[in-house]
Design a protein around this nucleic acid. Sequence first.
DNA 1: TATTTGTGCCTTTTT
DNA 2: GGCACAAATA
Length: 773
Amino acid sequence: MKNYLDELNEPQREAVEATEGPLMVIAGAGSGKTRVLTFRIAHLIEKGVDPFNILSLTFTNKAAREMKDRISKVVGANEAKNLWMGTFHSVFARILRVEATRLGYPSDFTIYDTQDTQSVMKKVLEELQLDKDIYKPKQVLHRISQLKNNLITVRAYHNNPELIEADAAAMRPKMGDVYRAYVDRCFKSGAMDFDDLLLRTNEVLTRFPEVLAKYQERFKYILVDEYQDTNHSQYLIVKALASRYENLCVVGDDAQSIYAFRGANIRNILSFQQDYPDAKVIALEQNYRSTKTIVGAANQIIAQNKDQLEKNVWTANDQGQTIPIYRALTDADEARYVASQIWELEINEHLKHQDIAILYRTNAQSRAIEEALRKRNLPYRVFGGTSFFQRKEIKDLVAYLRLLINQNDEEALLRIINYPARGIGQTTLNKLTVASGELDKSIYEILENIGQYNSKIGLNKPTSQKLNDFITMIKSFKVMLQNHDVYEVATHVAKTTGLIKTLKEDDTPEGISRLENLQEILNSIQGYVEEQKQLDEGDPSLSGFLENVALATDADNSDDDENKVSLMTVHLAKGLEFPAVFIVGLEENLFPSMMNLNTRQELEEERRLFYVALTRAEKFAQMTYSVSRFRWGKIVDSEPSRFLEEIDDKYLEWKNLNAGLPINKSGLNANLFEDDYSQVPKFERKKPEEKKPATPLKPKAGFKPVAQANIINQMNGESVELSAGKIVMHDRFGKGKVISLEGEMDNVKATVLFDNAGEKKLLLNFAKLKVIS
DNA sequence: TATTTGTGCCTTTTT
DNA sequence: GGCACAAATA
């Protein structure tokens, strides 16, 4: 227990022991930053600091849990349990449960997720009669998010001619009205969006000195992980809380700042020393994670960026293998290659599924990979994308529960008032909404006294009765909540509202899976209730559960013990490490993203993202790019990413540079499903030392009519040869005979004479033809 | 009113 | 190819 300090190197140890005063730790990738944070907290407790006085802000809730576990092992669970650890959003949501009433919010305020806010915004824009093609909900919300993260309130906005002008110049002169209406609407619904959680925390700390003093006293020691990714709002909260004792330790790596798009401000880390002139700064430069090859290649990448702090990450680890870079012909080929390499790694290097991660730039890329993994029977888990709690069937049930806690939650109410269908249509809802505005009462309040309003609103008897039935049902749930636990209520809700029945009627695979999801959420509610009942400070209440739902990140609820290959975006991979990592889709306009090519700053963030991806790898890293890819339903040609050029060839091993698309020999994409390309007509072999690898060696697109083409059999994914005379099957047209084939390489058209539908020209890329004989 | 069919838009990245 | 929204129909 005492010798934990011996497990640290010199700078790590220094960072752990410098407990008093401001400290910034610049931690290179893989340099043991989590270790430092963990031991530092343990050390504080060992020195006699009350865990109650320590606040630790992590990037995910999962990271917080893991750190807590590790601290428990050093100082004991009893000590560790009083630590405040979590993400900014979850910690300050907890604080706002106590303090938000000062700002006029209910303490059971709802947290609106992205879906909710978009839905609110659409209604706002409709009400203001603004063109939703100009005021695109997503863009407008992004703008508001920017404003909030810079603590520009509605009033501040209207007092700021510069901002108003900027929005006018961007063709959105009504931005201020939209902002006000959106904020009002959320407030009336007793709801906060993600940015509000930070903005309102700032507000409460600024407006109420006694609140500030309370939390300053409470959090005498503050630690912030991933400091490079904090935004201005978070920065100010930390600054305010730490200003009394200044026992603030921030840990970060400017080279890994990848959240500028959501307001992260790299200046927070770059200017720490100006904010705290007597701050101690410690750099952790020894990488314990990766091979020399990986560290060397990563260093070369990041060296291309201008905006960065000097540092020299090095490692004493083995040289390791060179990094293979596979040039794929299509995204399917890329996926197939990755799957086959995973097999090899598992056999030759004795890796388990869980040792392997596949990282990509966009969530959409997972599909092709998933398919290839399934074919190889490799179990996998996809992180991110539409998370469990975003699914419709889950949101429906949660909306009922939300309404029980916060009757003003209009999003929840409108979502479920007619789901499952109970004959309350759009017309009725419009009337209610109008009445709600005129009477300045929430829709729920109107419904509670529907008898007294229905003539004024203009509702007929049957409709009024339906509304009354609905509100009676909701009220009965509320009553039940008083003496039953959340699981019992949720189950009752799912049954009595007809949610389960509706899903049961749908026996398509999707319907069945939705029913399973509903079952799963009920199970997880039960699990949550049981778990919270066990804990001393557990909160088995419905509002506690709902907060978890709103702030759960996908990285949080992983089944750790499952042995599966991980698939995720590079963003989600931050802070993780794997023995083997595949980075796929290294192509121009994808990674770097086409959206981020306009300014140097944007491009540098993409480069940092690539740096993060590569530095996740311990022993084996591989990269792939494809010369063509399915995007927006079309095959798009692509070129290798510029980032590949930035790595010295001594670290790399270029693979499959010669494979082309031999349209004149055996047809389109003939060789996608074989590993042996030796039979394929060769393009000029490229020698890396002669030519920069990233210069695309694209096979020239052929424009000749083709005699044959290979299509991919929809059933088993195998390639099947197609030529004139073959009998094929089409979903809509039925059976038919191929008359001829024509067209360009990736754009082959087949003329088919169908038995019942006559002659059709079909694009092979789109028509799902099955070859019968 | 509810359900089905058709269309236009789309894609970064996430708390 | 997929999803959200609009129009068309029972």
